[in-house]
Design a protein around this nucleic acid. Structure first.
Length: 717
DNA sequence: CTGGGCATCT
DNA sequence: AGATGCC
């Protein structure tokens, strides 16, 4: 969306004067009428920061265990050292080195498993949040990098700076020997370097993280320059050195945006170095890549990048995956899916939003094409299940998602033949903030839940991305010295509602009610808490078998309760595979986050009739609902065999294949659902959204199946 | 040609 | 639904 029209270089003036003219520019070669309009050179002289944390995973582990600071440390995922601390690097260990090679280089290397990204993810979002509390225009790139557009912050300081003040640079200046720098020629970049230094200091003091920063006039250059002095330093790039830094790149592949495939295609054209590309006729490039891509590539080679810093906000999808050498039985697949879903559902619950789409991805082994070839299938998530996720009935949700996943699995893999998987991924997407339960198709709820993809609301050319968008809609922290600011207003005290709001569902004790600042008219508080009259308990007991004392019943372990309520397992089909799949919902409540935030959801609806006009506003994401997670979960598995009863019919349009693959207790769950479904079928619309959100108070949190219609998901299709 | 994510474009 | 790119 950010392309063609505004793609041309409207870049910084400084660059234009110093560099553009010296390089054979394209327009001459482009004979015909210009395809791209040339934006008016609004001096939107941006100051962009790029932050890059040092060996991020290793840092996090060293914070968790300071003893690791003094030893060579490697973070291991499967057979690979994904990153390592600098002690290890001194001994020759590098990123993405195989474990065997690393151990060879450095026998004393200490390894920490890094496959579970939880801690890294948390720290990563703390970092982004922290930066956002100073300036809302923060864009994430992976877990350890952030871009910031600090133009307005710089301009403000500049305005406060008296004439003829001494400007200086903090940190390095690219291609300068730190003495000959005339900072007064570049006051904005100079101020930017000070802001960068302050932010790095803040990050260090508040989070204990060190990292590099690059200061430049666009994202491309900021990113390229940030890595020039490596651990825990910062570098500023002056416009007159743009061509130098670009020319210093060893190959086109080093240009961010030029990946493996693109580099190969370029090489086929004889293009290897950055200079090659700079001199290559745009027309020829267009033939290979098409207009917009060609122009963008060429611009990148020139150091031109007008792409705005687009606030990232909350993730648009949550996924969990695992890779392995070989997986070839349906049973293994099922267990892996269960495992992945358990953790993913927990994450989703903490997030607070409700996923509307589920996707299953696999990677099949194939001798020829080993490392690519992912395949995926997706389907909508029925509302009942989505609600169980948000309401915290996680095990219930997992139980109901598993059949969905298995259906998708069978759409991809013919399990009657041999198969060989090397990866499974489960993913929630189409994340909906808070919306009430969707009763029907339309209804007011659609107003709340209507999804204008949050990011897309932030599309404007860099032209409009200057101060107006920031000073108008947001406020960067205004203090002259960031370090002062942070000592008073920290993460926990700053108003979370504005973009500084909790980016992620971690921590933070925050009073539920939040002061709202900007854009009052747009807000749609969706906080309509659907308080559920507590009919929850009744339905359980009311269908108790005769001669069971309800009081006694309540005291029984939940598994037993369920068994009493659902004699389903006696079904012949179910019996056929009671052959114990030792399924245990090893539900790990490994983390107990204390805080929860409770923020009224704000959806900003944007008329974006003309994408080129109004800057609108950044999207504010806030986790819906309290979603407090009490570290105590109870449920345990009942591997036990149980009395068999007789009735219980197998519901029609159930895919027997899928069903038969499910673990016995999952089958029981489903059967239980089906049984309870019957009354609903009789009185179609009467009771439906009723319970299901059993507040998971201590005991009965576990798996209580409720009234949900699962039939359709078993329909063979 | 390795990991476990994420995003965007088609 | 896949390809591509980034970390």
């Amino acid at each position: 969306m950010d392309n063609s029209e505004d793609e041309v270089e409207e870049d910084e003036n400084e660059w234009r004067t110093s560099f553009v003219d010296s390089v054979p520019l394209s327009p001459a070669a482009v004979s015909g009428p210009r395809l791209y309009k040339i934006p008016e050179p609004t001096p939107a002289h941006r100051i962009i920061l790029h932050f890059d944390l040092d060996c991020f995973y290793a840092q996090v582990e060293m914070i968790r265990n300071p003893a690791l600071r003094e030893v060579p440390l490697g973070i291991q995922q499967k057979y690979i050292i994904v990153t390592c601390n600098y002690v290890a690097r001194e001994q020759g260990v590098t990123k993405l080195m195989s474990v065997t090679d690393a151990k060879e280089k450095c026998p004393q290397l200490v390894l920490v498993k890094g496959e579970d990204l939880t801690h890294y993810r948390e720290m990563s979002y703390k970092m982004t949040e922290l930066l956002m509390s100073y300036c809302p225009l923060v864009e994430r790139l992976g877990f350890d990098e952030n871009f910031m557009d600090i133009t307005s912050m710089v301009e403000r300081r500049l305005a406060q700076t008296s004439e003829s003040e001494n400007f200086s640079f903090k940190g390095h200046v690219y291609n300068h020997l730190s003495a000959d720098v005339k900072a007064s020629d570049h006051p904005r970049l100079a101020l930017g370097s000070h802001i960068a230094a302050e932010l790095r200091e803040v990050v260090h003091s508040k989070l204990g993280l060190t990292g590099c920063a690059g200061i430049a006039t666009n994202k491309l250059l900021a990113k390229l320059v940030s890595g020039t002095f490596k651990p825990n330093q910062q570098t500023t790039l002056l416009p007159e050195n743009v061509s130098v830094i670009m020319g210093d790149l060893s190959s086109l592949r080093k240009v961010p945006g030029v990946g493996h495939q693109t580099a190969k295609r370029l090489q086929a054209l004889g293009l290897v170095s950055v200079k090659d590309m700079q001199l290559y006729p745009l027309n020829d490039l267009v033939r290979e890549f098409g207009g917009p891509s060609a122009q963008r590539l060429k611009n990148l080679a020139l150091g031109v990048d007008d792409s705005p810093v687009t606030p990232t906000g909350a993730p648009q999808s949550l996924s969990d995956e695992d890779s392995f050498k070989k997986m070839s039985s349906t049973k293994e697949v099922l267990e892996k899916i269960q495992e992945l879903l358990s953790s993913l559902v927990e994450r989703m619950h903490k997030d607070g939003r409700q996923p509307q789409t589920f996707r299953l991805t696999t990677r099949k082994y194939s001798a020829t094409n080993k490392w690519f070839s992912r395949e995926s299938r997706q389907c909508p998530i029925p509302n009942h299940i989505g609600q169980k996720i948000t309401s915290g009935s996680s095990d219930d949700a997992v139980v109901q998602l598993v059949p969905l996943a298995m259906k998708l699995f069978h759409k991809m893999i013919d399990s009657s033949a041999a198969f060989h998987l090397t990866l499974i991924n489960v993913c929630f997407s189409n994340l909906q903030s808070r919306g009430a339960a969707v009763s029907g198709k339309g209804s007011i709820t659609s107003f709340f839940t209507q999804t204008t993809s949050p990011r897309k609301t932030q599309i404007f050319s860099s032209q409009s991305q200057d101060d107006s968008s920031q000073t108008g809609g947001h406020h960067c922290v205004d203090h002259q010295f960031i370090t002062q600011h942070i000592s008073q207003e920290t993460l926990t005290t700053k108003s979370p509602r504005s973009s500084g709001a909790a980016l992620y569902g971690f921590k933070r004790k925050q009073s539920p009610v939040v002061a709202e600042e900007d854009h009052p008219p747009q807000k749609v508080p969706c906080s309509t808490e659907r308080s559920n009259p507590d009919e929850t308990n009744n339905t359980m007991t009311q269908r108790l078998p005769p001669n069971v004392d309800p009081e006694v019943f309540r005291l029984l372990p939940e598994e037993i309760q369920k068994e009493l309520l659902s004699p389903a397992y006696t079904n012949s089909l179910a019996n056929s595979l009671v052959a114990e799949v030792p399924y245990t919902t090893k539900h790990k409540a490994q983390q107990k986050f204390t805080g929860s935030k409770n923020i009224t959801d704000v959806k900003e609806t944007v008329d974006k009739l003309d994408p080129s006009d109004l800057p609108t506003t950044v999207n504010h994401w806030s986790p819906a609902g309290p979603s407090l997670f009490q570290g105590e979960n109870v449920m345990e598995e009942a591997g036990l065999s149980l009395p068999r009863s007789s009735d219980c019919e197998f519901p029609g349009n159930v895919d027997p294949k899928v069903f038969s693959e499910l673990p016995p207790d999952v089958q029981r769950e489903l059967m239980s659902e089906w049984k309870q479904q019957e009354p609903v079928l009789k009185t179609p619309s009467s009771r439906k959204p009723g319970r299901s959100l059993m507040t998971k108070d201590r005991k009965s949190a576990g798996k209580s199946s409720q009234t949900n219609n699962l039939f359709k998901y078993f329909k063979p299709s």
